[in-house]
């Protein structure tokens, strides 16, 4: 067990991760996709800072997160949206109030799951619980989102959840995990952009409503 981080760092990290959780909920609340991408960028930056502050192996990952997910990916998504000319709001299937309610329920479920484990120290349990919450919220926002872009955003939020899990344990994860995370991120963005362009070619709209020909 490496030495516990000094008190002020622990406080700021908790504060930063709490803000990241708020961002995830914000993603569910707001209708507009542009705002959604900005919220995602903010969340990534917050988590990146937390990673840097926690030190150890997390510094490299944190810087990478801030740079890549804070700036490059949002720019890429904005460019893709203009190219496709999608309308601005994401009109989700479920009204925002209900989706927030479900989000809260998912958060409670995640925290209960990890609190039930005896062998975990509170901080690590909190970290894992937060990561599970982010992942479930990402999944929920994908399920609710009507636009293809919403699904890509959902994947990215899920990936942020994994990032939290990676930095939350006091042991630095071997480079494989970091490589895996980066690799997963790369896939999400590259493939989705390729496919979105091909979907645009064929359907001339990225409304996932039109994407349900294959039935039965």
């Amino acid at each position: 067990m490496t030495a516990a981080p000094p008190f002020w760092i622990a406080q700021t990290v908790t504060f930063l991760t709490a803000l990241a959780l708020v961002c995830a909920f914000a993603l569910l609340a707001f209708r507009s996709l542009h705002l959604g991408i900005r919220v995602y960028a903010a969340q990534s930056v917050l988590l990146g800072l937390a990673g840097v502050l926690l030190g150890g192996g997390g510094v490299g990952m944190g810087v990478l997160a801030i740079g890549l997910k804070g700036a490059v990916i949002p720019w890429f998504l904005f460019k893709m949206m203009e190219e496709i000319g999608v309308r601005r709001e994401s009109d989700p299937y479920v009204p925002p109030a209900l989706s927030l309610g479900v989000g809260v329920a998912l958060a409670l479920l995640s925290y209960a799951a990890f609190k039930a484990l005896p062998g975990l120290s509170p901080s690590v349990a909190g970290g894992f619980a937060l990561s599970l919450t982010l992942m479930l919220l990402g999944l929920w926002s994908m399920a609710v989102g009507r636009k293809v872009i919403a699904q890509i955003l959902g994947i990215l939020v899920v990936e942020n959840g994994l990032f939290v899990a990676a930095i939350s344990t006091e042991f630095r994860l071997p480079i494989f995990i970091e490589l895996g995370l980066a690799f997963d991120l790369l896939i999400a963005v590259m493939v989705s952009s390729l496919l979105v362009s091909r979907i645009r070619e064929t359907y001339l709209s990225i409304d996932s409503e039109r994407l349900n020909r294959l039935k039965g």
Binding site: L106, A113, L136, L139, A143, S208, L211, G216
Partner: peptide
């Protein structure tokens, strides 16, 4: 199998929820 991806993601979420509830 109604074709919409949102429904399928909903199935995933429900399955995970049930598993966690069973675990709890």
């Amino acid at each position: 199998q109604a074709g919409s991806i949102n429904l399928y993601l909903g199935y995933l979420l429900v399955a995970l929820g049930v598993l966690l509830a069973l675990f709890l």
